[in-house]
Design a protein around this nucleic acid. Structure first.
Lengths: 230, 230
DNA sequence: TACTGAAAGATACACTGTATCGAATCGATG
DNA sequence: CATCGATTCGATACAGTGTATCTTTCAGTA
């Protein structure tokens, strides 16, 4: 018996999210939500299952391992990376900026990018768009060029996100960051073992993340342009 | 009583590695050994402790968390990254090659590079060497230039190691790799959704990893050279 | 209706990083 | 020298992980 009350007085059970038919898409969406909110460490099969009102082992009907789930997450992120523009240079720049933008919205992407070969449909579609925009170029140069831009973006985005996290970890604002890391570096430089580094850190203008990213990207695109039109 | 035998007949106990005084260096060396042998997932505080004939919690006298251990591992790897050469271009190229070389010897480095800011003494020393070699250059350009090269290296190395692992996972040799991934891509291309990609994969020369890395690096260094001497 | 196959899910296992707390050690003091 | 207090150390415990296994359930067929 459910309770002492008669049916008439007893409230209906709270309508749990009806165990909607599962799908990879729903699973991946739930995982991404968790990762967006609390980082990649917050993505566990148990938590994903709970979010979907399902028992953990159920997920193994849709994925073979957690790694596959991460692959699906990355491919879902690639769905948002849609390079546009006229000419190879604009498209490559757009690819870079769009990837960076995606990593800003999904910081966990920085942890995953480049970690495994990306062969999902959306990643392939992104590749297709980019390669199609380079059709004037020597066919043997296309993959190296795209690969180089991708490599730069992956590395740059990783470092940028890593720095952002470190700042956040020391207390959210730049003041505390300076107060926490500054002294350490001060002491390190005070040893006199890193004179050149100390000079640069002291004297050079400190570019913000946007400019730093674009500057490195310009180096690369300039170099590509020089080799391509030769 | 230890056993029924008299001392005289009883063999001495096998000389366990004497619980030598612990140190960060010993801990890190043990962790690196594990990671070199079986990958980063094989590095657990319990396994490291066991390798040192010590109980796990003992390690927390030397490190505050596993993350710190990973930081120490990366810094230890930086000790092997010693760029050399005459002139900024050679030194930057050397930095890139040395980093790549280190990641080849310690594949786990690819998982860690760029994941957190590197401020250990060896990483700073590497930075010092590089920055010192760029002293002719506009001080405001130095950090962006070094950062761009580092970003490229991190991304390129990650992708290279990821590919290497994927190949290994399908059965060690290139034949099986072609047999496993080839058909998948064949089918993907057969859908006609990636015509440009398919054309390039079919027609282009496939560079080996060394050439691919150097080609991308040359793009970048060329672009840097153009901006610097201006 | 009985039986068989497949699907679903609870349970279990081996392992993780690390908080906690009791025991042991050591220095200082009566 | 004895005793006490503080400090260090490490065994135990906890809450979590990915996933193998095995039991249960149920649909479809004979």
């Amino acid at each position: 018996m459910v309770s002492g009350m008669l049916v008439w007085e007893r409230p209906e059970p709270p309508d749990r999210p009806v165990p909607a038919p599962l799908s990879r898409e729903r699973i991946v969406r739930a995982a991404i939500q968790l990762a967006d909110a609390d980082g990649l460490d917050a993505v566990s099969l148990r938590k994903v299952a709970t979010a979907l009102d399902v028992r953990p082992m159920r997920l193994y009907g849709y994925i073979a391992s957690k790694e596959e789930l991460l692959d699906l997450m990355v491919d879902a992120a690639y769905a948002e990376i849609r390079p546009v523009g006229d000419g190879w240079r604009e498209v490559l720049r757009s690819l870079a900026e769009a990837t960076r933008h995606a990593a800003h919205e999904h910081e966990w992407l920085a942890d995953l990018l480049g970690g495994r070969p990306q062969l999902g449909p959306h990643a392939l579609a992104t590749g297709e768009t980019v390669v199609a925009a380079l059709d004037g170029i020597d066919v043997d140069a296309i993959m190296p060029v795209v690969g180089a831009v991708n490599a730069y973006v992956i590395g740059a985005v990783r470092r940028e996100i890593a720095e952002r996290r470190a700042e956040r970890a020391t207390g959210m604002d730049e003041k505390r960051w300076q107060a926490s890391l500054g002294p350490y570096l001060k002491r390190a430089f005070a040893t006199g073992r890193f004179p050149a580094l100390a000079t640069v850190v002291r004297d050079a203008a400190h570019l913000d993340a946007d400019h730093t990213f674009r500057m490195g990207l310009d180096f690369l695109l300039d170099g590509i342009e020089a080799r391509i039109s030769r």
